[in-house]
Amino acid sequence: MPKQVKAIVIAGNGTNCEREVAFACKLAGADVSDIVHVAELLAGRVKLDDYHFLNLAGGFLDGDDLGSAKAGANRLLHAKIAGSDETIADQIRRFVAAGKLVMGVCNGFQLMVKMGLLPALTGESKQSCSLTFNDGGRFEDRWAWLKVDPESPCVFTRGLDAVYLPVRHGEGKFVTDNKGTLMQLEQQNLAVVKYADADLNPTMVYPDNPNGSEASIAGICDPTGRLFGLMPHPEAYIHRTHHPRWTREDMPEEGMGLWMYQNAVRFIREELLK
């Protein structure tokens, strides 16, 4: 029997995009696309070791009461799995060391940076950047163009030049702890996608840049390109009918967001299951 591409989407404690993410994985060709509550992981009934593609979905983890995804990050970092001295973060680190893929979208991206999974410039799980309140001081629900860095090692954006995706966040402004971190992200081409204007030029101008992110950054990857986080929602544009102008413009059946999931499934088949 052929080996199967297995994707897992962690749900619970305020996530609300898990069904869309799981469907995107399935539509992209994953043989298994499971939605698993975080409590199942903490109970030891499900292990990340059994999967190839970890998805951290968007939502409002613990109501974002301590800041976006901060409580969720502490839970994964410190809560012990039943009958074990291991945490979910320990499983994630083993997952990453095995060459597997992780993508965090919106609240999932916030979770990754606060756990130190991104950008992991030194290979250590240490927080060096964050997502904070939008410059406009309010929740943004709009569509944005993203310019893709063609030199980025990111697995998920291979072959892509630009994508048009919805943003839905109140704390999406990307910030770094110092100019050195930002410089490294730029020099190593880890600033994978940037908010852009209609001519696909990265911009700091609102509303094309909906939150005031440093250097227009909408998403980053780690140096391996296998860990990727972004604020816009690729799972929300996987079919032409998701586009706000689908009744007025002629466009392909597949939505642009689906391309990222297809790249992930292709990588797993070619690199992990060969």
Rank of each mutant, 00 (worst) to 15 (best):
A22Y: 05
A196M: 12
D62Q: 07
V38W: 06
P210I: 14
H242W: 02
I35Y: 06
I238S: 06
Y237F: 10
V175R: 09
I217W: 00
H242Q: 05
P232E: 09
C129P: 00
I268W: 06
L272Y: 14
P223K: 08
M115S: 12
A7Q: 08
T176E: 01
D250Y: 10
E171N: 01
Q4K: 10
A89L: 14
S68W: 07
V192P: 00
R138D: 14
D222L: 02
R245Y: 13
V96C: 10
T247Q: 12
C154Q: 11
P232W: 05
G44S: 03
L131I: 05
D250W: 10
Y51A: 11
E18D: 10
A198M: 01
A28H: 10
P166M: 03
V38H: 07
K114Q: 11
V9P: 01
F53G: 00
H239Q: 11
K274E: 07
A82F: 08
G229W: 07
G257E: 08
T157L: 06
F53W: 07
R138V: 07
S68C: 15
N13F: 09
K6S: 06
E186N: 06
S84E: 08
P244Y: 04
I92N: 09
E270D: 10
W246N: 11
Q184N: 11
G229F: 04
G63I: 03
K126P: 06
D90G: 14
K179M: 03
G137R: 03
L200A: 04
P234C: 08
V38Y: 07
P202M: 01
G12F: 02
S84L: 00
L54F: 02
Q127S: 05
L146E: 12
G212P: 10
Q188P: 00
Y51H: 08
V36K: 11
P232K: 12
G29Q: 03
E124V: 09
K80F: 04
Y164S: 02
Q127H: 03
V102L: 05
S216F: 07
D135H: 10
S68L: 12
C129D: 01
H78Y: 13
T15D: 11
M103V: 15
P210T: 14
I8C: 06
S128N: 09
F109H: 08
V192E: 02
R19N: 01
P207N: 04
S68P: 09
L272V: 12
F60S: 01
A82C: 02
G58T: 07
G44E: 01
S213F: 00
N16P: 00
D197E: 09
V9N: 06
P210V: 15
A264H: 10
T241I: 12
K194N: 04
D161P: 01
E235M: 02
E214R: 09
L54P: 01
H239W: 08
D141C: 07
L42P: 04
F60M: 00
A57T: 06
H233Q: 10
L27A: 15
T132A: 05
R226C: 09
L160M: 15
R94N: 11
E186G: 03
D141A: 11
N178H: 06
K47P: 02
A215P: 01
L27S: 13
G14Q: 03
N263G: 14
S213A: 02
Q127V: 04
S213N: 04
E270I: 08
C106W: 08
T157E: 02
G104T: 13
M115R: 04
P252L: 04
I92P: 09
D85V: 08
E124R: 13
T15R: 04
D34E: 14
M204Q: 10
